[in-house]
């Protein structure tokens, strides 16, 4: 029951972020999305008695829900990001497009869900989150929301890892975290250079 609630919340935070037109609010929704993901990892880890997943859940909360949003806000202030980020897709089209994506992905993942033990619908939610994150990247002109779209995509993949496989090996999870931090370092460098240009 708890997992059902949080997985719904995961999807909801992503959908809300698709309509957001302010950068700080978008960062906040990404943080909420990561927070829910961390709680989901903790709940699943506890249910499966999987210590590795519990550690990953804590790492998600610390790195993705707190660390990365803090860094992004910091970058935003340091490099003077544009904070008015109006999505390119108009709201009335997005209202039609988002449910269409959800229905399509549930239909698309239907043959897979029969093959996965346990919470089959969660896989469909993970795949739809992946598509919605792609939409988030596509609907914005500026770099900062595109980065959040990329980070949300990582969250969707992480959710897929939890739900479809009952957790990836610890080594892989930590590797993904490391790569994410490396991505932040590279982004920081790119923004530095952008400032030098202007």
């Amino acid at each position: 029951m708890g997992v059902d609630f949080f997985i719904g919340l995961f999807l909801a935070t992503l959908i809300v972020s698709l309509f957001t037109s302010r950068l700080y609010r978008l960062i906040l929704w990404y943080s909420m999305n990561s927070l829910v993901l961390g709680i989901l990892a903790l709940l699943t880890g506890k249910a499966l008695d999987d210590k590795a997943m519990l550690i990953t859940g804590i790492a998600t909360l610390l790195i993705k829900a707190v660390g990365i949003p803090y860094l992004l806000k910091n970058f935003s202030e340091k490099f003077h990001f544009v904070r008015q980020i109006q999505p390119e897709i108009k709201v009335h089209y997005a209202i039609i497009l988002i449910p269409a994506i959800l229905v399509f992905t549930f239909y698309l993942s239907e043959p897979i869900t029969h093959m996965i033990n346990g919470n089959a619908n969660y896989v469909a939610v993970s795949i739809s989150s992946l598509f919605l994150s792609l939409l988030l990247m596509m609907e914005h002109r500026y770099v900062a929301p595109k980065i959040i779209g990329f980070l949300s995509m990582e969250n969707a993949l992480f959710l897929l890892g939890i739900t479809a496989t009952g957790g990836m090996p610890m080594l892989v999870e930590l590797g993904i975290f490391f790569d994410l931090l490396m991505a932040i370092v590279v982004m920081n460098l790119l923004f530095h250079k952008e400032e030098e240009h202007s």
């Binding site: 990836m168 090996p169 080594l171 892989v172 590797g175 993904i176 790569d179 490396m182 991505a183 590279v186």
Partner: peptide, 13 residues
């Protein structure tokens, strides 16, 4: 998993 981590590291660099 390690294959992917290595590839991601190379891509980012």
């Amino acid at each position: 998993g390690i294959y992917w981590i290595g590839l991601e590291l190379a891509t980012l660099s």
